[in-house]
């Protein structure tokens, strides 16, 4: 704990200028928002209800801690858990498929020749474009499938790049030390790949949140995406904005967890 406090103090000492400017820009934004909202209200604009003041949005957000959400009449953590679960499932499935595929396509020329056209055709299609059909075909799993698609390609491409970047002299060294093919794979290629995989995972997480919110906004009754849609349908605009803030926070948190995990991992592996 002492270490942590020390680290925190050092962080402030090194970064207080950046923190100060960051605070300034956020405050300026909030003030501008507040003034605009106040202006709409004072001119009796029809638009006023669409732009609630930041304080009103904050009240809506804080309200979730004391009462169930008024629009969906469940506690907000039900939505958060629903979205996290989908992201997690899509994520695990994407890892399970993308890693072996990337390994194959990175190491076997034939696998690359077979897979590349498919990858190049489907990769540029935004995962969101699949929402209408996936929600029909996969039902409750539709959102998971969208997340899967969004996360799949960044991980696949990074694993493939990683396999191709393995320093051949490391494989030579392992072989002269007595490694067979399997051992070269588990003891050289896999450890070499881990940083590449982490890059894919971090990129994938960002895409994942985009996908999940979009999918939930189209269909379903739970999840933060649904929270946005239902709040807006019912005219609960403060709650709609609060849900947007919630997504921002959740996305920062998951990316933060991934970055922390990566730092731990690379520290443990001696890469940093």
């Amino acid at each position: 704990m002492v270490d942590f406090a020390k680290e925190l103090r050092r962080y402030f000492q090194d970064h207080w200028r950046n923190l100060l400017f960051g605070l300034l820009s956020v405050s300026a934004f909030l003030v501008a928002w507040h003034l605009y909202s106040y202006y709409l209200e004072s001119t009796d604009s029809d638009f006023a209800k669409y732009v609630p003041a930041p304080g009103v949005v904050a009240d809506a957000f804080m309200g979730w801690f004391s009462d169930p959400d008024p629009g969906t009449s469940v506690w907000v953590d039900v939505h958060v858990v629903a979205s996290l679960k989908r992201i997690f499932l899509g994520f695990v499935l994407a890892l399970a498929v993308a890693i072996p595929t990337g390994l194959l396509m990175g190491s076997l020329r034939m696998a690359d020749a077979l897979g590349k056209p498919i990858v190049e055709i489907f990769r540029p299609i935004p995962p969101i474009a699949w929402i209408p059909i996936f929600l029909v075909v996969f039902g409750n799993w539709g959102a998971v499938a969208i997340v899967f698609l969004g996360i799949f390609f960044p991980i696949l491409l990074n694993v493939q790049l990683g396999v191709r970047s393995v320093d051949p002299v490391l494989i030579d060294a392992a072989r002269t030390l007595g490694a067979n093919r399997g051992q070269v794979f588990t003891k050289v290629i896999i450890p070499f790949l881990i940083p590449y995989m982490m890059t894919g995972i971090k990129v994938g997480l960002g895409v994942g949140w985009m996908c999940i919110v979009a999918a939930e906004m189209v269909g379903g009754s739970t999840g933060v995406g649904s929270l946005i849609r239902i709040s807006s349908d019912l005219g609960l605009f403060p709650h709609m904005y609060a849900a947007m803030v919630l997504i921002g926070i959740l996305s920062v948190l998951t990316t933060g967890v991934a970055a922390l995990f990566e730092r731990r991992l690379s520290k443990w592996m001696g890469m940093r």
């Binding site: 060294a173 002269t176 007595g178 450890p191 881990i194 592996m269 001696g270 890469m271």
Partner: peptide, 21 residues
Amino acid sequence: VGAGPERGMVFQEFALFPWRT
């Protein structure tokens, strides 16, 4: 026939595994 542990090799590029102490 093939590489083996009875013939140790030392490389110009060191070829150490960077993730191992």
